[in-house]
Design a protein around this nucleic acid. Structure first.
Length: 270
DNA sequence: AAATTCTCCTGAAGGC
DNA sequence: TGCCTTCAGGAGAATT
């Protein structure tokens, strides 16, 4: 499923095909995604030129002088560039038509979103209250620690809650806490500053590593099969319940926190 | 306000 | 072989 690294890779993959190109129309085959795709989206964007393609949290933004198309991939979405006239397959819900190509959204489970934000997209309700980008210089232990102290939820739930830091999904939350040696069940306000420092460092580390691996799929981005298992070999705990920890051989444990599967090593994480 | 639970959807996996 | 049930997952909405 698309986590921040995959969204980053997706944005980078489509950017060179879109910047400087003008939207001709939008075809919506299935409007019922996470939210209804605006019925007048085609009319809104027609004639607008893509000035930049950026990412905020797990949103991919197609920016024009009038406003931005907000794209979210949910957990099964993907974007690709295909030639005009390419036959749509199952779950190909939305096409953005350009003069010589199509940007096509496929989303099996329809948890994704396609929205239009007039004006400054960062003022949109979905974006305006988001926390910091984990890979930004502003995301530091000094920033995070006071926020941790104010919350009593499990630290894993806190990390996945976009109010403090965005883009850390279920897989990377488990992986980051393993690398930081912190039990996912610890309350946010129980962390020491030193633990907060480790947490910030490993979040950056694990996301950066995954983006580098995502770069591999970038090459054949327009090729649908280029997406299999690109980070699975670097997972230490996620999906490994009952198997031995790579560090100490202790059996990896699984429990549910905030309705999410959480994996951890009971010996390496304290 | 903060924490918890519910919700959307599809396909894979497990049970019988 | 096949049908039925269960479950995962991003993140806003609803509820406690």
């Amino acid at each position: 499923m698309p986590e921040l690294p995959e969204v980053e890779t997706t944005c980078a993959g489509i950017r060179p095909y879109l910047v400087g190109n003008t939207l001709q129309n939008v075809i919506v085959r299935q409007a019922q995604l996470r939210w209804l795709v605006p019925h007048d989206l085609g009319r809104q964007v027609q004639g607008l030129t893509i000035e930049s393609v950026t990412r905020r949290a797990k949103y991919c933004l197609l920016n024009t002088v009038q406003g931005s198309v907000i794209l979210h991939l949910g957990m099964s979405g993907n974007l690709k560039i295909v030639p005009l006239g390419t036959v749509a397959n199952k779950h190909d819900h939305v096409d953005f038509l350009f003069a010589d190509k199509i940007l096509r959204l496929n989303d099996q489970r329809r948890f994704g979103a396609v929205l239009w934000a007039k004006g400054d997209v960062h003022q949109h309700p979905l974006l305006v209250n988001l926390g910091l980008e984990p890979l930004s210089d502003a995301f530091t232990p000094e920033y995070l620690y006071p926020l941790l102290l104010k919350r009593r939820v499990a630290v894993k739930v806190f990390v996945m809650d976009g109010r403090a830091v965005v883009g850390v999904g279920n897989i990377y939350a488990s992986e980051a806490l393993f690398r930081a040696g912190i039990l996912p069940t610890r309350t946010a306000n129980s962390l020491t500053f030193a633990e907060c420092e480790r947490l910030v460092a490993v979040i950056k580390q694990v996301l950066q590593a995954a983006i580098l691996q995502g770069g591999t799929t970038l090459k054949d981005f327009v090729n649908p099969q280029g997406k299999a298992g690109y980070f699975s070999q670097s997972l230490n705990v996620y999906g490994r319940a009952g198997q031995g920890c790579y560090v100490c051989q202790t059996s990896i444990q699984l429990l549910t926190l905030g309705q999410r599967a959480s994996y951890f090593c009971p010996l390496c994480q304290q």
